[in-house]
């Protein structure tokens, strides 16, 4: 290829690869900066306990029923599927243990985080976006109140504390659902069902689930706050911010899930 006849497809091809990568890196930069500011402002007084409690109520208490419901059905479905699959080689007494493993390591943290992203994350993005577009965030700043400290820190603390709690709820209710289907309806032996849970479920499984839920709690609230906090463009902008908050926090949960799993699991 000579110098004076550049391949015309090349710049656009290059651009179409570079542009999204650049956007992604910039986005990670924005999130990193916001996370850093949130941590800095968490340790600086004044400590706003009331705001934290209000957010915990919003993230946690108001999501409990929903998370429990999803947990129940997830456990029930898993019991049916594993009984069906394991019966082929007469291993259905493993069902309790397998369901407990899957729930603790994957289903409970991931699905809980997704439920919270859909319910509380979207709410946070919409509320912060409205506050941005109606100049309430500017007003806070004018009154010498740091908006990151006042608005974002309580939400992130609530997410980091409450998503693990909700994950535990999901796990326990999910096990209950599996027990209901497996033992009550498909007549597995209750003693073996619980015994397999005890022998198969190691402390490391619970630890992995807990770690995931903490990381997801951080990520989901950070991404939701980021989209609301920096929203622009009036009502349309707030709508877009809400959508992006949910979409990107769900994507974030799956990506982080893979990263944590591959780091903690020796196959």
């Amino acid at each position: 290829m000579s110098d004076d006849s550049p391949d015309s497809a090349q710049p656009s091809l290059l651009a179409s690869v570079v542009a999204p990568v650049k956007t992604l890196l910039e986005e990670i930069g924005v999130l990193g900066d916001l996370a850093f500011r949130a941590v800095m402002w968490t340790v600086r007084p004044p400590y706003r306990f009331q705001l934290v409690i209000a957010q915990m109520e919003f993230v946690g208490v108001q999501s409990t029923f929903l998370v429990g419901l999803v947990g129940l059905f997830t456990g029930m479905v898993f019991a049916v599927q594993t009984v069906y699959g394991f019966r082929r080689f007469s291993a259905e007494n493993m069902v309790g243990g397998v369901v407990a493993l899957t729930l603790s390591r994957e289903m409970a943290p991931v699905l809980t985080a997704i439920m919270v992203a859909a319910r509380a994350g979207s709410g946070m993005a919409a509320e912060l976006g409205n506050m941005r577009s109606s100049e309430q965030i500017d007003a806070l700043e004018t009154m010498a109140v740091n908006p990151v400290q006042y608005l974002i820190v309580p939400r992130m603390i609530a997410g980091i504390v409450m998503i693990p709690v909700l994950t535990l709820v999901f796990f326990l209710v999910g096990l209950g659902g599996a027990w209901l289907v497996g033992v009550k309806w498909l007549s597995l032996d209750p003693g073996i069902f619980f015994d397999r849970i005890k022998t198969m479920l190691a402390e490391a499984d619970l630890r992995q689930g807990l770690l995931k839920s903490v990381v997801f709690g951080f990520a989901v609230t950070l991404i939701a706050c980021r989209h609301g906090f920096f929203a622009s463009g009036g009502a349309v902008g707030v709508g877009q911010a809400t959508t992006r908050a949910v979409v990107w926090s769900v994507v974030g949960v799956f990506v982080l899930d893979y990263i944590i799993t591959s780091m903690l699991t020796q196959v």
Binding site: S134, E135, Q136, D138, A139
Partner: peptide, 9 residues
Amino acid sequence: MVFQKYALF
């Protein structure tokens, strides 16, 4: 500051 869009909480 008195804001154009009130900016009440």
